[in-house]
Design a protein around this nucleic acid. Structure first.
Lengths: 339, 339
DNA sequence: CACCACAACGATAACGATTTCGGTATGGTT
DNA sequence: AACCATACCGAAATCGTTATCGTTGTGGTG
């Protein structure tokens, strides 16, 4: 393992001062061509790299942002993260990631770890539990540290920070509308138990679309599933007791599992039951039948979040807090009839 | 946006010295209870946090590691990353991630970004192109910087660094053996075009199993597919021209697509054609039929990689370079007949 | 010869924290 | 009264870098 060389080491070996070495490496016109050559040669020989920590201390900027994600199993967060990472890297920023696993405690730990590591800003999507308990103390701490905050997808107005999101209510409204246009009247909604703002918004969009088309909203057509480990049996009883001709699911994981159950009950997809899910991920693309989904365009959300954050970090004057709405698209596949 | 308070600010406001403030915050016995109380109160009021960059400069350690992944679309890397992240966080380490997208240039950029950001160590899985071109210059640079390196899954002996991997040849051997035990004799191998050491090893394990059972290895039963955007047509011609009763796939993505094609050709899975894939991810679990896979236990690999790296970072004496082999397991699902 | 401009380099402060060492009261002891 | 131990606090070095400001020495000019 090689030694870490510093300006001091180079200066000592060349019998010149530290300042001269520094200036030589930074192409200062003050330094003679002769000296510069010698310095550069030795620096190259020793693979010299300036100590970034020392630079940070001077510049009081780390070129470093943190990201807190609820998880990575949902393809949506993976794509958002990809968007963040690529944009940030292109602007010379490092990205540290932590996971909250939808737990408030882990979210707090993550934020503390990031704050302690001196990030210039944080991008996060709220843990489910945090939204449920409405515990914002750790997020207020972020602002108190003078650290910029951008929230995406799962956001809150209780904390100062920019927001990047999709119009969940409207996207669900449009998706439901699409099912209605296909002639479906008994439309179910499969959502999650946990208190997530996005799912609530999607539910309201779903209800709005039904009402606008004079379809009665029946609460028994709405099934709230646990966040993980969905029991196929509960899906089976739901679909046997509650005849439907279309299903809207708040994520692709639920959709795929529901499709299996419905198919096993002898129904044809999409002829008897049409499906629309959320998250344009692997499962949607490669399921059978492939799943029509609302694409939240995670990559765009990630890019936008990183852009907003880094712009703030780099800006001399404080910028206003704002909301950015990313458009959604409906990706039609084989779980809805092609018209 | 709040101001960042320093020891100096607190000292000035309390009319005491910086050293006293520092000691008070660190519970030094030298400080009177009275003073300490005042200091703590003000520190709390101002949400004081020590500047981590300054600390790093003193300690010359950043408690920060970097990870370079080929991508996140393969579930395997997601789980490895999760393992790394959780282990590292538990030991107070931050984790920065970059993606190579299997491109050597991006891998170099990523390594440079990480080295410039002053990480204590780097965990990486080689980009496909890097393995193909055998270009190790950027990795040798890591060692030259005195930065520790751990490689997992896609590794090389041309660079000094620890290795964490599975026994690819043996796992493929065992999987193939399993298919043979099920009475299959015409076993295909679906692999990728790109030069990946792991896939070559898997192929040799596949061949070894065939030969040991006196089955002829026929090269037309091996299909090398492009890394992305597999053309269903090429799969269709393969399976029509080449009758098989079992298929081993080097990843779950290929397996799922192949299963769709085979099912569309009127064959039953697993009765007519059995499937075994790699990567125990979402696709395997929720495909129809669900896929029997070799589980590489990515989470364990991630944990082990992080453990090895952080142990090296924290160790005073230089530790030896070693290889760690993570055991694989065969997860049996419905793409193979249950015996 | 006195003066000055300029090229080339060095000393030093600064970033924010810890820590070692020194200093100054205060109290008690002989 | 002289001394010393103790309690409490402050000055300064240190980490590695850059930037500001001096400080040389050389050459040319009046």
């Amino acid at each position: 393992m090689a030694k870490k060389y510093t300006l001091k080491d180079l200066a000592l070996e060349l019998n010149i001062s530290i300042s001269t070495v520094s200036k030589a490496l930074n192409n200062s016109p003050e330094i003679s061509e002769d000296t510069q050559k010698k310095v550069l040669a030795l620096a190259q020989l020793y693979h010299y790299r300036p100590n970034s920590t020392a630079l940070r201390l001077r510049e009081s900027r780390s070129n470093h942002i943190g990201v807190v994600l609820p998880d990575l199993v949902h393809h949506f967060f993976t794509t958002v993260f990809k968007g963040i990472e690529e944009y940030a890297n292109a602007r010379g920023f490092n990205v540290s990631v932590c996971f909250s696993d939808d737990s408030t405690q882990k979210e707090k730990d993550a934020i503390n770890l990031l704050l302690d590591s001196g990030v210039d800003g944080i991008i996060l999507s709220l843990a489910g539990q945090t939204q449920q308990m409405a515990d914002w103390s750790h997020l207020q701490e972020v602002a108190a540290q003078g650290t910029h905050l951008v929230m995406f997808d799962r956001v809150t107005d209780h904390v100062p920070g920019d927001q990047v999101l999709i119009d969940d209510a409207h996207s669900a409204y449009k998706a439901t509308q699409r099912l209605i246009d296909l002639g479906r009247t008994k439309i179910a909604l499969l959502t999650t138990e946990s208190y997530l703002s996005v799912n609530q918004d999607r539910q309201s969009g779903y209800i709005k679309a039904l009402k606008e088309s004079n379809l009665t909203y029946e609460s028994q057509r709405v099934l709230a599933l646990p966040k993980s480990d969905v029991d196929p049996a509960s899906l089976k009883t739901f679909f046997t007791e509650c005849p439907v001709d279309a299903v809207l699911c708040v994520n692709e994981l639920i959709a795929v599992q529901a499709m299996h159950v419905v198919a096993a009950l002898g129904k044809r997809i999409p002829e008897d039951v049409a499906f629309i899910g959320y998250n344009n991920g692997m499962l949607s693309k490669y399921s059978y039948p492939s799943l029509t989904v609302v694409d939240q365009q995670g990559y765009l959300m990630g890019e936008k979040s990183a852009e907003v954050l880094i712009d703030k970090i780099c800006s001399k004057t404080p910028l206003d807090i704002s909301k950015y709405v990313i458009p959604t698209t409906l990706v039609e596949r084989n779980s809805t009839p092609n018209t």
